[in-house]
């Protein structure tokens, strides 16, 4: 059975624009637990009809997490349900709700955010990284890379939320103008936020050991940090309970020799990020939201 590859996987939020607007209005008064309860019966249909996504998720739990067939089947359900919860939480945030964020690892982020140089912040398709843009506050200018393909509703809600935290969206564009914007933000001492696990724009990748096998990670984010010799942090925002998330912040490439060539440092940073991502995903396997064959 065919599966999505890196370049095919869009990962955009489902639903039409008016449906999403209705959800934002609904979540102003609808309890989260009730919203989750509405998600639960929908999941079997996703499992039944999105066969490629189901297959990728099932193989992830069988081959990477090492679960038996029945356990893997129920894990796919849990995986899809978590994804539904995360989407609900995003719309709840758009509607003005807030979540408790356990952030005992914040000193790393705070130290960098209060320092003069800019840095790169890496996210991933695990947990609810988007919440970091709404909940991590910094006086620095932050540019966050976003992909086209989302509806106007999602983009407008995101822009409104980000604006409160000094965050601006930088859309990926075919003419590469986003690179100049990101570079300018970094050179002015700002923060650039981008996914560390998604191949976009350039097809250049670093092959990194991930869950026991080589997997392609995008070269861009690591090259950007290595070329500019700026710090890099990986941020993971993982769902713990209905109203609570835990944030993990890891500095990447802190102990690398700055005299090494930039490509060598970038490759090492990509591998370090892959190791961090794996350790977090092993703690929260049902919050792995790359529904395609990540290793292909």
């Amino acid at each position: 059975m065919a599966q999505y590859e890196h370049s095919e996987w869009q990962g955009s939020t489902g639903g039409t624009s008016w449906m999403q607007r209705a959800m934002v209005k609904l979540f102003r008064f609808l309890p989260l637990s009730l919203a989750y309860a509405c998600v639960a019966p929908v999941i079997p249909f996703y499992m039944l009809f999105d066969r490629r996504g189901y297959r990728a998720s099932y193989r992830f739990f069988r081959d990477r997490i090492g679960r038996g067939p029945l356990h893997a089947f129920f894990s796919v359900y849990a995986n899809e349900f978590r994804m539904g919860q995360v989407v609900v939480d995003r719309f709840a945030m758009y509607a003005g709700r807030s979540f408790k964020l356990d952030n005992d690892e914040m000193p790393v982020f705070t130290r960098l955010a209060e320092g003069e140089p800019g840095f790169v912040q890496l996210g991933s398709h695990t947990g609810n990284f988007e919440l970091s843009g709404y909940m991590l506050r910094s006086i620095k200018r932050m540019g966050t890379l976003v992909f086209s393909g989302e509806t106007d509703t999602v983009m407008q809600q995101r822009a409104a939320m980000f604006a409160r935290n000094n965050v601006e969206m930088v859309p990926v564009s075919d003419d590469m103008s986003h690179l100049f914007t990101l570079n300018a933000i970094l050179s002015e001492g700002g923060i650039v936020s981008m996914p560390g696990d998604r191949v976009f724009g350039s097809q250049k990748t670093f092959s990194c050991l991930f869950f026991g096998d080589p997997a392609p990670f995008p070269a861009g984010p690591y090259m950007l940090a290595a070329q500019r010799s700026v710090a890099m942090v990986a941020v993971f925002v993982m769902k713990e309970s209905i109203h609570r998330y835990r944030i993990f912040v890891r500095q990447i490439g802190e102990n690398l020799d700055p005299a090494l060539p930039s490509r060598t440092r970038a490759q090492a940073m990509a591998q370090e990020f892959a190791a961090c991502l794996e350790s977090v995903v092993r703690m929260y396997p049902t919050q792995w939201f790359n529904f395609y064959d990540f290793w292909k």
Binding site: M176, L179, F180, N183, G201, S202, Q203, K204, A219, G220, M223, L224, Q227, R228
Partner: peptide, 11 residues
């Protein structure tokens, strides 16, 4: 060249 190379040229 591609977008990664643009970054190199900017630097």
């Amino acid at each position: 060249l591609d977008s990664i190379d643009v970054l190199e040229l900017i630097v």
